[in-house]
Design a protein around this nucleic acid. Sequence first.
DNA 1: TGTCACATTAGATATAATCTAAAAACGTAT
DNA 2: ATACGTTTTTAGATTATATCTAATGTGACA
Lengths: 141, 141
Amino acid sequence: MDAGAIRRSLEGRGLRCTPQRYAVIAFLLKQNKHPTAAEIFEAVNRVDPRCSRATTYNNLRDLVQAGLVREVAVEGRAARFDATGMRHHHFICDRCGNVEDMEWYEVPQPASNSLGKRIVRECELIFRGLCSKCAPRHASG
Amino acid sequence: MDAGAIRRSLEGRGLRCTPQRYAVIAFLLKQNKHPTAAEIFEAVNRVDPRCSRATTYNNLRDLVQAGLVREVAVEGRAARFDATGMRHHHFICDRCGNVEDMEWYEVPQPASNSLGKRIVRECELIFRGLCSKCAPRHASG
DNA sequence: TGTCACATTAGATATAATCTAAAAACGTAT
DNA sequence: ATACGTTTTTAGATTATATCTAATGTGACA
């Protein structure tokens, strides 16, 4: 995704392409792991000190609302953010909390629409275990 | 699940059946929705003021570690806890953050074990949308 | 260039959860 | 029953994460 495409996808959703906002999403698009807000702030702010903590959080919120970024909550840890365009599932490491992508595949919907009055968006599949960094540290695998 | 069964399942995992610990898991077992730690603390503490905040959190941590309770992280909100014995999936309301159970059904594993060095436990399916309380408030459904 | 809505900022604040060190409760051996 | 070591609990401080506030800046466009 080049600069023009990023600009267009922001403006197509009513978001101005400010330097700060651009920096946040461009940084996210470069990642293959999914950083926390604090990590994003640190990285973006190091390159361009104009981007404050509040702006980082504001922009992440806006980008999530606009559907350009996915937020992944992790128990007892900071949320992770993910700007990957392609559909995918997620893997969360029990030990370090890192979130990684898993290849996407179709998941059957619930049989009876026991959902009743609810409006359901899409379902996510979350795998759990130990990532390649953490697995070796465990004695018995 | 009666008191004896609770006691046995605690002690079977090396956890003493203290009044506080018992109160936490017994309260959770009664719920059909999944309360936050703060809600659990409030409810348990109201009945028995001996149970402090730290104890509630400690016990929730221990119960999760022992596999008797599931923790569900929700973006931007407090985690929810779930002591249901039966397998199930989860539904999270985008608006109020409430977590509800969805009927369980088998989900296919990823085709290629692209997991590589990772050790995978089990996968969870999370549905999103608006719960029956929140859905009506939305104009266009 | 003036205007106005959108964005950004630093720092304060809120919320969620954990830590600390001391005291209490429990199980066991005596 | 009593003493002892371990587990558990406690109140309050502390950390971690995220949001809020009110002032300031920015850019598109008339």
